[in-house]
């Protein structure tokens, strides 16, 4: 599935390692929370980039102390109507100060991209024939924002004070 980051399609750098599957010899990997917790030292010892994938029932508090070891956190949307990961993304960025990639995976749709970006997601795995065009459409609609989030978009209140 295409990956979109910084308005462009990017190549997948991470090898997804499901459950207790064997780790590849080298290269970046994306593992589940349980695998990370079980094999933490071995994963760090590999010397490659590590990503952790959280289900929508796994809050990022579980990895808050590990974030300096991680370059990617992938947050799952089991259905686009399950909005827990919006809070998780904000917590990762605004509470825990995570600077790495926050990736939206699962039921990711054009119409939710803007909310996701505002919440702190910067990478999107979504099924589309034209992801770059979709990104432009999704960002073009709304240009006024009322909520201060970590995305640095100026809110209406901030602009009024200028």
């Amino acid at each position: 599935m295409p990956l979109l980051k910084n308005e462009a399609i990017i190549k997948e750098l991470y090898t997804r390692v499901e459950g207790e599957d064997t780790l590849p010899d080298r290269g970046a990997v994306l593992v589940d929370l349980a695998r990370w917790q079980a094999d933490r030292s071995a994963l760090i010892a590999r010397g490659s980039e590590i990503g952790v994938r959280l289900t929508s029932a796994e809050a990022p508090e579980a990895i808050a102390d590990d974030l300096s070891q991680l370059s990617l956190v992938a947050l799952e949307f089991p259905a686009f109507t399950d909005g827990r990961a919006y809070s998780y993304a904000r917590l990762l960025r605004e509470r825990y100060g995570f600077q790495g990639e926050v990736r939206a995976v699962g039921d990711v749709l054009l119409e939710q991209l803007h909310f996701m970006h505002r919440s702190g997601f910067d990478c999107f795995e979504f099924s589309s024939d034209q992801p770059e065009e979709d990104w432009i459409i999704a960002q073009a609609d709304m240009k006024v924002w009322y909520q201060p989030t970590g995305d640095k978009r100026p809110t209406a209140t901030q602009l009024r004070r200028r």
């Binding site: 909005g83 939710q112 709304m142």
Partner: peptide, 9 residues
């Protein structure tokens, strides 16, 4: 209004 975090409660 269009709170990005709370639109899919």
């Amino acid at each position: 209004s269009l709170h990005p975090e709370f639109s899919f409660l």
